[in-house]
Amino acid sequence: MFRRLAKALLAAPLALSLSGVVSQSAHAADTTLLNVSYDPTRELYSDLNKSFIAGWKKDHPADTLTIRQSHGGSGAQARTVIDGLEADVVTLALAYDIDAIAARGLLATDWQKRLPDNSSPYTSTIVFLVRKGNPKGIKDWDDLVKPGIKVITPNPKTSGGARWNFLAAWGYALKQNGGSEEKAQDFVKALFKNVPVLDTGARGSTITFVERGLGDVLIAWENEAYLSVNELGPDKFDIVTPPYTILAEPPVAVVDKVVDKKGTRAIAEAYLKYLYTPEGQEIAARNYYRPRLAAVAEKYKDKFAKTQIFTIDDVFGGWAKAQKTFFADGGIFDKIYSN
């Protein structure tokens, strides 16, 4: 009995690994793209991939195209690409994370100029998700620093979304205090005093707020807030759009080194350009990203609350500068959070 078992145990991995090899080589003849993205885009890109593949199939009936997705915290995903994950395209939460990949020579450093609108085909903004009926009466950023309010936001060191949250609050405080950096720092510090737990990613924070029931308000991507309301019931949460908030531009880029090695440049570029087409923009809007295309934006205008929006370039002089000032080791976030 033992011999038979031993034989079975030894034979199983061999057979399985062989079958793995066979199926992999069968796929090799087809085109596979890998889209390395961040957390809240899971639903957006599974919709977009289906639509793009369907269109591509019409022009190439004999071939197959597979688009694979990988999701995680934006910073962590950039790190994985730097460490060798062969992403044909990266679609991350902020330009700085793609800059980090470019700094290792995987794509041209002027990547952000290659596609329209700062290579950000859709935008989002930062909103508040509150418990149904807004029991704490949260309307604006000021309400987040009130004593006793529990605010949920992820860790800006690891999460792209959290950095947008941080900068949105900072931008608001600057405007309220006539541009005083000192007062802005006090404001953001008071805000983080009200944060009981810092998750590593945007999705982690959402789960903390909606599933674990922690906190009075979640600072979130607009699209993430809409998704939670839809998935978990409109009877549980309300979305509050603050009157003054930041324009979040999640950028996309083809990874030169990977597509040139795999010979997938043409199709990877077509894939990203598809995001700018009316169909691509519709899919983005349906997934609660604000479209760039005026016609599509007009069609979905009731879906997104009107608000005054500032850009990172206007207030902070771009991502590279903001990253260095606020989120680098020893930067302002470290100072705020260590005290």
Partner: peptide
């Protein structure tokens, strides 16, 4: 697959 290969190697 992973379990089978790892167990085989560790065996």
């Amino acid at each position: 697959i992973v379990a089978a290969i790892s167990v085989g190697l560790n065996l």
